[in-house]
């Protein structure tokens, strides 16, 4: 949890203490429910204290399939390292938050390569069908799963048009404190919410820029001055399964 603003904003300290107390109580209540005893509430509060999560932001990704190379999986590796998604060498049941797709046009033979992940829809079908509200969409557009109230019914996996969700089929070890996971619950790309709340870019984007071909741009779709918004305004982009009208936060170029 980022509490660095405390030193900058001493006047806010009482409020901060109350928040920490609330987070502490909530964390204690949920202790033991997920992996190492940390709470998703910490994630929700991970933003600096004087900033709230707001619908003024809409975090998203723009992926240029012309730059995304077939055979390159830098984004997948980056995600796997960041969230410790090493599986059990059982590809049918191991979780995949991001995967590379090879798309071949049957008529022309043209092949595109692109990463597929949670599309962080504005109207997510996974959120609609979740009976307990464990699947939820943050005000800033990030779609998450509250691991404390996910009962593992897998209805969201059935409902996701992008096959972006995985069910955790077995016990997990060595989890990252900022990325809680748990056997018997469903999970998917968090858009590296812990990084976003810390003003950093998601791990996949960082890896793509460092080890790949710079095909991914992350930013605030609502900020007209952001690179992502400007690029999307100037060049055509599209959503996958546009026909469903979900207004995805992840968009693709040259597809």
């Amino acid at each position: 949890m980022n509490l660095s603003s405390e030193s900058k904003q001493p006047a806010k300290q009482p409020d901060g203490q109350r928040r920490r107390l609330l987070a502490g109580v909530a964390g204690a209540v949920s202790l033991g429910s997920v992996g190492g005893g940390f709470s998703l509430i910490e994630l929700a509060l991970a933003k600096s204290e004087d900033e709230t999560i707001s619908s003024l932001n809409r975090w998203g990704l723009l992926i240029d399939t012309a730059k995304c190379a077939s055979g390159c999986d830098a984004c997948v590796k980056g995600c796997s390292t960041e969230h410790n998604l090493d599986g059990f060498d059982r590809p049918e049941t191991d979780a995949q938050w991001i995967r590379k797709l090879e798309v071949t046009d049957r008529q022309t033979g043209h092949v595109s390569s692109l990463p597929m992940l949670c599309q962080h829809c504005e109207d997510p079908p996974c959120v609609d069908v979740c009976p307990t509200g464990a699947s939820f969409r943050r005000e800033d557009g990030i779609v998450l799963v509250d691991k404390h109230i996910c009962i593992g019914c897998r209805y969201c996996v059935m409902a996701c048009p992008y096959k972006a969700r995985s069910f955790v089929h077995e016990s997990l070890h060595n989890q990252k404190s900022y990325s809680p996971r748990g056997k018997g619950t469903v999970e998917s790309c968090t858009l590296c919410v812990h990084r976003i709340d810390d003003d950093r870019t998601p791990a996949c984007v960082e890896s793509c820029n460092r080890d790949g071909n710079g095909a991914m741009v992350f930013g605030d779709l609502n900020d007209a001055d952001s690179q992502i918004a400007q690029t999307m305004r100037d060049t055509p982009s599209r959503q996958i399964r546009e026909d469903l009208g979900l207004n995805t936060g992840v968009r693709y170029q040259n597809l």
Binding site: P91, E92, Q96, R99, K100, L101, E102, V103, T104, D105, R106, Q107, M116, P161, Y162, K163, I240, R241
Partner: peptide, 16 residues
């Protein structure tokens, strides 16, 4: 399989 791209063939490590 889910149809992500109608009219196109899709492959991946996730059984697309």
């Amino acid at each position: 399989p889910l149809v992500l791209f109608p009219g196109k063939e899709v492959s991946s490590t996730f059984y697309d």
